[in-house]
Design a protein around this nucleic acid. Structure first.
Length: 492
RNA sequence: GGCCCCUUGGUCAAGUGGUUAAGACACCGGCCUUUCACGCCGGUAACAGGGGUUCGAAUCCCCUAGGGGUCACCA
C-alpha cells in the first residue's frame, strides 16, 4: 500500500450520462492525472429496478468519447474488483453481519405505513423526518415472531445520538451535522440488497479510494457514510463536494432545460474537446485568463483549490461559441467526415460517396465551417449547394433584381459562364471584370445581383468559391430559372 | 418545515484587507469585406441588504433576504 491518490467515478446505470455526472467524472479524472493517481470506474447497480446494462454501456462509451480513460474498474479489471456492485454482494454481507454482531446495526420490521406515519408526525412537529429507532431493542423472541408473520426485515445502522459529525470538505471547509438529526438509516434492504450509503462506503474503503469527489447533492449523505467508516474501523477518505449545475431558471439541471445527456451533444455534432473544455470551466477556473484548453492542458492546470463553491448555470450560448471555435480550428476533413451522416440522413448525399464528391464535400465544408456552432447545423447551411433552382427569393433579393442593370448583369454573367472554356477562380474573376467594364458596374452592384440570382439571398459564403463549387451547369440553370421566374411574375 | 450549502454584471467567472473590481459568452457600436459569417477595436453592465471589526472592506464576524440541495428499502 502506498500513499498514491485513488479516485473514482461511480455512476449508477439507470440512464444516460448526464452533464453533471460527466463533470464529476472529468474532475476526478483531472485530479488523478494531475497527481499521478489512479482513476477507477465502478458501477453502482444496487437499484435492481432501474439499473440496466444498456445504460452502463452508454455511460462508458460517453466517458471514452470525452477522452477519459481509467486505470482500474469495469471493463479493464484490477486487483480490487469486482467493480460492479451486484457482483460484490457477499462482500457487503460480511460487513453488515459484523455490524449486527457488534450491536452497531439491527433488524427493523417496520412497514412502509408505519414509517410514513412516523415521518408525517415529525414533519408536523417541525422536526427532521427520520426513523427514531423503534426496532432497536426488539428481543430475539419478538424478532422471531415478526419473522413468522412473514415480515421481511431491513438492517438499520444504529446512530449514536448527541454527536456532532464534522465533514472536512476540501472545497467547502468544515461542515457540521448533528447526529440527532439523522435517523437510523437502512444498510440492507428487505431483499438483501445493500443501499447506496452502505455499499459506497464498503467499496470506497476496500478499493482504497483516497478522495471522494462528487456532486453537492451528496453532502448531506456524508455524515452517514462517515459513521459507517468509523463503525467498521476503516481509514477515512477525504471528501470534496462540487457545486451543482443549474438550468437557466437556476434549478437543478434536468431534461426540461434542454439537452442534458452527453450523448445528445454527441449526436448534435459537438466536439468532445469543446464539451470537455466547457465543462471544466463550469465550477472551476484556471489561473490566468486563458480559457481554451486541451484535455492535456487541463491536467496541467487543474487543482481542487480552484473549484468554486457556488452553483453554476449551464450557458448553452457559450458552449455553442466554444464549440464553434473548435470547429473552426478543425481540419475540413474532420468536419466533413462528421457531417456526412447528417447529410445522408437528409438525403443530400448518397450512402456510397464517390471520391469526387468526397473531395467536393471537403471544399464545401471548408467554406461553411466558420459559421457552424455544431456540425448537424451543416444540413441547413449546405442547402445552397444543391438544386437547379434557388430555394426562395428573399424580399431584399427580389428588390435588388427589380433593377434593370442588375438583371442585365445576371443575364450576361450566365452567357459568359456558358461560353467560357475553363472553370476556375481566375476565369470567374475575368468574367466579373469583363461585365463590370461593359456595364459600368462594380463592387456590390456587380456581385450581389449574381449572388441573388444564384441563392436568392443577400448573404452566404464567398461568391467566387460558391460559383466554382456549384459547377457550371448549376450556375447556368439557376440563373436562368431565376430570370425566368422573374419575368413570369412581372408579366402577371 | 428541519438540516446543510451558496450569493461579484443577463451567464461563466478572477479577486483572498488598500485594484480605475480582471477576462470570457451574450448584447450594442465601429472597422475589415462584393454579402453573411469569421476576425479586429471599442462600449453598456456587478460586489443581495443591513449591522459590526478595521485607518481602510467584494475580501473577516453577525443578522436578514434570496436561491439551491437534502430529508427513500434512488443514487
Amino acid at each position: 500500500m502506498s500513499d498514491k491518490i485513488r479516485v473514482r467515478f461511480a455512476p449508477s446505470p439507470t440512464g444516460p450520462l448526464h452533464i453533471g455526472g460527466a463533470r464529476s467524472a472529468l474532475f476526478n479524472w483531472l485530479f488523478a492525472r494531475k497527481r499521478q493517481g489512479d482513476f477507477i470506474v465502478r458501477i453502482e447497480d444496487t437499484d435492481v429496478e432501474r439499473s440496466n446494462l444498456v445504460s452502463e454501456e452508454v455511460i462508458l462509451e460517453d466517458l471514452k468519447w470525452m477522452g477519459l480513460d481509467w486505470d482500474e474498474g469495469i471493463q479493464v479489471g484490477g486487483e480490487k474488483g469486482p467493480y460492479r456492485q451486484r457482483e460484490r454482494l457477499e462482500i457487503y454481507d460480511s460487513y453488515w453481519k459484523r455490524l449486527l454482531e457488534e450491536g452497531k446495526a439491527y433488524y427493523c420490521f417496520c412497514t412502509e405505513e408505519e414509517l410514513e406515519e412516523e415521518r408525517e408526525s415529525l414533519r408536523k412537529k417541525g422536526e427532521m423526518p427520520r426513523y427514531l429507532g423503534k426496532c432497536r431493542d426488539l428481543t430475539q423472541a419478538e424478532r422471531d415472531k415478526l419473522r413468522e408473520e412473514g415480515r421481511k426485515p431491513v438492517v438499520r445502522f444504529k446512530v449514536t445520538w448527541g454527536e456532532t459529525i464534522t465533514v472536512e470538505d476540501l472545497i467547502r471547509g468544515r461542515v457540521n451535522f448533528e447526529s440527532d438529526g439523522i435517523g437510523d438509516f437502512i444498510l440492507v434492504r428487505s431483499d438483501g440488497m445493500p443501499t447506496y450509503n452502505f455499499a459506497v462506503v464498503i467499496d470506497d474503503a476496500l478499493m482504497e479510494i483516497t478522495h471522494v469527489i462528487r456532486g453537492e447533492e451528496h453532502l448531506s449523505n456524508t455524515p452517514r457514510q462517515m459513521m459507517i467508516y468509523r463503525a467498521l474501523g476503516f481509514k477515512m477518505t477525504s471528501f470534496a463536494h462540487i457545486s451543482l449545475i443549474l438550468g437557466e431558471d437556476r434549478t437543478k439541471m434536468s431534461k426540461r432545460h434542454g439537452a442534458t445527456a452527453i450523448s445528445q451533444y454527441r449526436k448534435m455534432g459537438y466536439l468532445p474537446e469543446a464539451l470537455v473544455n466547457f465543462l471544466a470551466l463550469l465550477g472551476w477556473a484556471p489561473e490566468g485568463e486563458r480559457e481554451m484548453f486541451t484535455l492535456h492542458e487541463l491536467v496541467e492546470e487543474f487543482s481542487l483549490e480552484r473549484v468554486s463553491r457556488s452553483a453554476a448555470v449551464f450557458n448553452f450560448r457559450k458552449l455553442n461559441w466554444m464549440n464553434g471555435e473548435y470547429i473552426r480550428e478543425s481540419s475540413p476533413e474532420r468536419i466533413r467526415d462528421m457531417a456526412i451522416p447528417y447529410l445522408q440522413e437528409e438525403g443530400l448525399v448518397d450512402e456510397k460517396i464517390s471520391s469526387q464528391d468526397y473531395q467536393w464535400l471537403k471544399e464545401v465544408i471548408a467554406l461553411l465551417q466558420e459559421q457552424l456552432e455544431y456540425v448537424s447545423q451543416v444540413v441547413t447551411h449546405i442547402k445552397v449547394f444543391f438544386g437547379d433552382e434557388i430555394e426562395e427569393l428573399s424580399p431584399e433579393g427580389a428588390e435588388m433584381l427589380e433593377d434593370e442593370q442588375a438583371r442585365q448583369i445576371v443575364q450576361r454573367f450566365r452567357e459568359e459562364c456558358i461560353q467560357v472554356e475553363s472553370w476556375d477562380k481566375e476565369t470567374i474573376k475575368g468574367i466579373f471584370k469583363r461585365i463590370g467594364k461593359e456595364l459600368g458596374a462594380g463592387g456590390k452592384k456587380l456581385f450581389q445581383p449574381v449572388r441573388v440570382g444564384l441563392t436568392g439571398t443577400l448573404q452566404g459564403p464567398d461568391l467566387q468559391s460558391l460559383i466554382i463549387l456549384l459547377g457550371r451547369e448549376k450556375v447556368a440553370n439557376r440563373l436562368q430559372n431565376t430570370l425566368h421566374n422573374l419575368t413570369k411574375n412581372t408579366q402577371c
